[in-house]
């Protein structure tokens, strides 16, 4: 049920620094846990990459490793000079890609 949530101000002033909050539901299986019944290790399944682009231009990326909690929360700051669309993608170990966009109006 991976579902992403993004919170940004709807409109910002030109050049103003604003905060982008994101939260995505993901189990972030660490690869360290064992299945209690079989005793076998549960394979790692985490989001390993987050990319945010603005009007097609990459503005923020981060590589994720183990030891990040389930349902990871990420917040960062952005400065915008023109209106546009913030496009965020999360990619996990299975190659699944989750996307979420937010429109920003610059006044």
């Amino acid at each position: 049920m991976a579902k992403a949530r993004v919170k940004t101000p709807k409109s910002v002033k030109k050049g103003e620094v604003f905060e982008v909050k994101t939260l995505i539901s993901h189990k972030m299986e660490s690869g360290q846990r064992k299945d209690k019944k079989t005793g076998k290790k549960i394979p790692q399944m985490i989001i390993n990459k987050f990319v945010c682009s603005y009007n097609g231009k990459e503005i923020f990326t981060s590589d994720w490793y183990s030891a990040i909690s389930a349902n990871p929360y990420l917040a960062f700051y952005v400065k915008a000079d023109a209106s546009g669309s913030l496009d965020m993608t999360w990619t996990d170990d299975s190659g699944a890609v989750f996307k979420k966009s937010a429109k920003i109006t610059v006044t």
Partner: peptide
């Protein structure tokens, strides 16, 4: 309410 991950369940 945004940072609270339980809201994934509230939404569902």
């Amino acid at each position: 309410n945004f940072a609270n991950p339980a809201f994934i369940w509230v939404d569902q």
